[in-house]
């Protein structure tokens, strides 16, 4: 199997602080939905930030399509085809929905194509068309998440990394978020998602990775991870969940 992204034994942390990731590894296969689960403080978000270049990797390496990403700035990693949607959704609250979508294509080399791509996204997500002139900061949480996720599609990236997209959303809206994720995956985008709700995350994924204390514990097909006894103990409080 050829890996799209390979993370090997990386160590990373914030500023001069202690390492949060202590040798985390991960392989990402093209076209699949990968879910990273693990208890609070396991380093799930930190792993995504290290991959996209927002945190320096202290040791270990990240390879994308066989090429090392070491020392690249976030804007350079984005150019390679890796998008990141952080928990805070990274919207521009005082720009309109349409302007936010345009910002999504900021790094496009050919800007003449931008308006057409924005139109396409608006066709695909009618709520964004309806709200195009509204400031992003005034939309509901679910609509903001839709915007943040749809916006990544402007670049037609290889990989989109989502950090807890369901955080703070009502259960009914949460399913919409996973539906959007499916739409993205159907267009051929490889997904790497961090999810606090392990059950929900794994059910919507092809592949699961379990992280604890900054290390990768184990990985495998999402269904197998869900059934694994170690998960039941570590994460779901030792109770078997159907």
């Amino acid at each position: 199997m050829s890996e799209l992204l390979e993370v090997k034994d990386i160590v990373a942390g914030y500023g001069d602080g202690p390492a949060i990731l202590n040798g985390a590894s991960l392989t990402v296969q093209p076209g699949k939905v990968h879910c990273i689960i693990g208890p609070n403080g396991a380093g799930k978000s930190t792993l995504l930030k290290a991959i996209c270049g927002m945190l320096p990797v202290r040791s270990g390496n990240v390879r994308f399509k066989g090429e090392s990403l070491a020392g690249l700035r976030p804007d350079q990693i984005l150019q390679k085809g890796i998008c990141f949607v952080p928990q805070e959704r990274a919207l521009f609250p005082k720009m309109t929905v349409r302007e936010n979508l345009r910002m999504g294509g900021f790094s496009l080399k050919d800007q003449s194509d931008l308006e057409r791509r924005v139109d396409e996204i608006e066709e695909q997500f009618p709520i964004l068309k309806e709200r195009r002139d509204q400031h992003a900061g005034t939309m509901s949480g679910g609509q903001q998440q839709t915007l943040a996720m749809a916006r990544t599609m402007i670049l037609r990236p290889d990989i989109v990394m989502l950090d807890e997209p369901s955080l703070g959303l009502a259960p009914k809206i949460v399913q919409q978020v996973f539906d959007i994720m499916k739409v993205m995956a159907d267009t051929g985008i490889t997904i790497l998602i961090v999810e606090q709700n392990a059950l929900l995350g794994l059910r919507n994924a092809d592949w699961g990775l379990v992280l604890d204390l900054g290390r990768s514990l184990f990985e495998g097909p999402a269904n197998d991870v869900l059934e694994d006894d170690r998960i039941q103990e570590l994460y779901l409080g030792g109770k078997k969940v159907a």
Partner: peptide, 23 residues
């Protein structure tokens, strides 16, 4: 201007601007 967009974006949300590919 495109650079003006980048400046406004950075003012509103520096981290987000970085994630959109703004240097």
């Amino acid at each position: 201007s495109r650079f003006g967009y980048a400046i406004r974006a950075t003012t509103q949300n520096r981290e987000a601007a970085e994630l959109m590919g703004v240097n």
